[in-house]
Simulated assay, not measured.
Amino acid sequence: MDDKYTNAREHFFAAIRALSASADSIQARLIEANVNIVNVTIDEFNGDRELKIKFAKLLDLLAIDQDDLETVAVENAAHMSDFDAVKVADLICDFYYEIT
């Protein structure tokens, strides 16, 4: 594994652990995952336009209003339907797969 996206991989791996290692609701697990994902910046994907766009779309799903990304991501996840939360969780897992 190369050093490209090391920081992003670490945070996304922690997010996936939060999604999978709990009996809490999917919304609660997504909130925990968001804490890790918001530590990744879009600049980490400079040089890979496709990943940058996918990450931006994921951030848009997590937090439409990006003034305080972490707070908004928590609020959005708390009010997502189970179906929407599962879709976002799937996107997180897919994104992690792409950066590994």
Rank of each mutant, 00 (worst) to 15 (best):
D65K: 06
D84A: 08
L91P: 01
M1S: 10
I64N: 12
K57C: 05
N36G: 03
N36C: 08
D24N: 15
F95R: 06
V38W: 05
A77L: 07
I53A: 10
F55M: 04
I16C: 12
N34R: 03
V38Q: 07
I42P: 02
M1R: 12
D67F: 11
R9F: 09
L19C: 06
A14F: 09
V40Y: 02
F83M: 09
V74K: 08
R29A: 05
V86G: 03
L19V: 04
V40C: 06
D84G: 00
L59D: 03
K54G: 05
N46P: 04
R49W: 15
F83Q: 13
V40I: 15
I53M: 08
I26A: 01
E75F: 12
L51I: 09
D67R: 11
Q66R: 15
V74D: 00
T41K: 15
E75D: 12
L62K: 03
D48K: 09
V86M: 08
D68N: 13
A85F: 01
G47R: 08
A15W: 03
K4S: 06
V86P: 02
M80T: 01
L58R: 03
A8C: 11
N76H: 12
L19W: 01
F13V: 09
L51D: 03
K52P: 02
D68A: 11
D3N: 15
N7Y: 14
A21L: 11
I16Y: 07
D67V: 08
T71I: 05
K87P: 01
E70C: 05
D2K: 15
L51M: 07
R9Q: 14
D48Q: 07
D2G: 14
V38A: 04
L61Q: 15
A89D: 03
E50F: 13
A23T: 11
A77P: 02
N34F: 00
A77G: 00
N36K: 10
D3Q: 15
D48M: 09
E10G: 01
D2V: 09
A33D: 03
L51K: 06
Q66C: 07
K87H: 03
D82S: 13
D65S: 10
K52T: 05
E98M: 14
A56Q: 15
A23L: 12
D60T: 11
Y96A: 15
S25Y: 12
I64D: 12
